[in-house]
Design a protein around this nucleic acid. Structure first.
Lengths: 229, 229
DNA sequence: CCCTTCCGTTACCCATTTGTCACGCAAGGG
DNA sequence: CCCTTGCGTGACAAATGGGTAACGGAAGGG
């Protein structure tokens, strides 16, 4: 999941946000001043900066400018937190390049939704992707459909993600650890044997194409290219 | 001359616009909140609503929807004022039926020109969108009517938007989060289960065609193409 | 002001999905 | 040929997701 830098001098609020974002699967980092925020951002580039407009040292706008001026951090997403009375500053916030704003007081649920929405927008600018095709297999991410030899085959959501991940990495072995992290998500502390079970279930559904999903003993799994020898 | 309702919570800006529009011969009325805007519009139907996207209570998009949902006010012209130059917001603005948009900061001169242009355009016959047709379903955006097997079926405003959104994305799965963001609007922090309820209500109204609205477990919903057997 | 419609939320129930375990086979090294 | 280790497989319990009905509040129309 994504990494969020939370910048707010009200510690209680910052920690409340922190707690909830972690609960929603984000990794987080806190900063209580503008300087600390910039330092933290330089240390570990966040995906999103949640930025209070009013800070003791630099204003949120200043922080915003500094971020945008840094070539490393230029493309970070910035969400401004503003109190109602600071409306006029909002416009300036957008002028210096905030990507979204949330007005205090806000519900945490709304904040989480906004964050997800903005991440989704930035990561998937395209509404539809071309399907992944590979020999007898075709996986259409946009429609969320999967075909074996032209026959639609129903996969569960998890199986679909697993298949997508493997097909997108054609020929490359994926270790169980990699799969756990990238298909299941960071927070999952599962038995690695669980993966075996899901691979088996996938193979069942692959039918005649089951040979394309290979085991690499002691390492992991991979999809092989049927065209390559 | 035409009557313009100016909706912006930044009073200074609203009054600046007001002053200039009066100078250009428009009659005007001000509203500083979404609620006030709706009330004012109900009281005295304006020819144009100049609508800030960001308001303290309802978002501009919400206001837009309310206006479009009201039979008296459905045909009012709406010009969105937005600080975001982002394509996504423009598109959403247009989706809910804004007739034009102006990006802040704008020159007052430009604003007046745009207003005049749009009033001129609207007096000409309204260009209509072709209805979305799909097997037994037909959704006429322009007339705001919906037919199942040729039979008109009444949908609520929300159901209509949901159906329109899904039909316009034929075959593509829409996640609950996407739907929340794009049909309901970002400002609404709803339970995702709310969507289920509305999908159910929609299915009821679809009657024999209910199978066209598919659930993709763990992902979202999609409309299937009856032609793609 | 009352009545109707619309909408968001909740609770319940069922089917499916998913994680875990135990067993035994297979692979590969010595 | 034997032993160790890794993996395939089937069974099972728990968790999850979604359909549905019902409720209450809000908004709109008369």
């Amino acid at each position: 999941m994504s990494h969020v830098l939370i910048v707010d001098d009200e510690r209680d609020l910052a920690e409340l946000i922190d707690f909830n974002l972690r609960g929603a699967g984000f990794s987080t980092r806190l900063a209580f001043t503008g300087e600390a925020a910039l330092e933290a951002a330089r240390e570990q580039s966040p995906d999103v900066v949640l930025l209070d407009l009013m800070l003791p040292d630099l204003s949120g706008i200043e922080v915003c400018r500094h971020l945008r001026a840094n070539s490393q951090l230029r493309d970070v997403l910035i969400v401004m937190l503003t109190a109602k009375s600071e409306e006029a500053d909002r416009i300036r916030g957008f002028e210096v390049g905030a990507d979204d704003y949330v007005v205090k007081p806000f519900s945490v649920r709304e904040l989480v939704l906004r964050l997800k929405a903005i991440l989704r927008r930035s990561s998937a600018p395209k509404d539809s992707l071309p399907p992944l095709a590979l020999g007898p297999l075709r996986l259409d991410v946009t429609a969320h459909r999967f075909y074996v030899e032209g026959q639609e085959t129903s996969l569960t959501a998890l199986e679909f993600r697993l298949m997508e991940h493997l097909m997108a990495r054609l020929g490359r072995v994926q270790t169980r650890e990699q799969l756990l992290e990238e298909v299941w998500g960071l927070s999952s502390a599962l038995e690695t044997r669980t993966i075996d079970t899901h691979v088996m279930r996938l193979r069942d559904k692959l039918g005649s194409a089951r040979a394309l999903l290979e085991t690499v003993r002691g390492v992991g799994y991979r999809i092989v290219d049927p065209a390559a020898g």
